[in-house]
Simulated assay, not measured.
Amino acid sequence: MTATIATGLCLVFGVPLAWFLARVDFRGRRLVRALVTVPLVLPPVVGGVALLLVLGRNGLAGRWLDAAFGLTLPFTTAGVVLAEAFVAMPFLVISVEGALRAADPRYEEAAATLGASRWTVFRRVTLPMIMPGVVAGAVLCWARALGEFGATITFAGNFPGKTQTMPLAVYLALETDPDAAIVLSLVLLAVSVAVLALLRDRWVSTS
């Protein structure tokens, strides 16, 4: 559930961000791209600490959220979603930006000369062209969110029924129920293999 919601958040914010990085030339674009993709190389635990520093109860933004709205994100289900979205977003942005750069801009230009608005061009021309990249990015994003461990346990904890994800359940079961840990690990392994097989078929079919 949390991996699916996190993927939805990544789609809502990641697709426009990828379009912005691919289509708009502005000073500092390399820096923005580096900041977006830094979770790929950042240790997940460090990502969780960064989320605590920003969104924790005494964090830069968390303090304001708590005072203004009484909203506390760490150690909640919403915190799990945010941690998973944080580490999974780069997979979507990179995939969609690559698809945008590979798409022929002449179709978009032709639609614009015929009077279509920017939103219409994006919805009716750009999005259908890059849909394979969006789908591939979303699948990778979901799989990465499903397997997230470090940022989740640091930012959201490991509370059964509230913030415990499958990787956290595997970690806990290793000490109390090794058989359950093996079963959960096999489920995650099967999902990972299925995702890779699906994306390989898509890449081979589109190449």
Rank of each mutant, 00 (worst) to 15 (best):
146 L>Q: 02
127 L>Y: 12
91 F>T: 01
181 A>H: 09
145 A>V: 04
82 L>D: 00
67 A>F: 14
122 F>K: 04
51 L>T: 09
168 L>M: 08
152 T>M: 06
171 Y>D: 02
110 A>Q: 09
121 V>R: 09
175 E>F: 09
180 A>Q: 13
91 F>V: 03
49 V>I: 12
141 C>P: 01
86 F>G: 07
141 C>A: 01
81 V>P: 03
63 R>Y: 14
56 G>E: 13
50 A>H: 08
120 T>I: 10
144 R>W: 01
181 A>M: 05
189 L>K: 00
50 A>T: 14
98 G>W: 01
181 A>K: 03
113 T>I: 10
171 Y>C: 01
148 E>V: 05
106 R>T: 15
109 E>H: 11
114 L>K: 09
129 M>W: 07
99 A>V: 01
120 T>H: 10
193 V>E: 00
160 P>F: 08
66 D>Q: 15
129 M>L: 15
174 L>Y: 10
176 T>G: 06
154 T>A: 12
54 V>N: 12
54 V>A: 15
131 M>L: 13
173 A>G: 01
102 A>K: 13
164 Q>H: 07
100 L>R: 11
115 G>V: 01
130 I>A: 06
71 L>T: 13
57 R>D: 14
67 A>Y: 14
93 V>S: 02
104 D>P: 10
138 A>F: 04
172 L>I: 09
102 A>H: 11
98 G>R: 01
190 A>R: 01
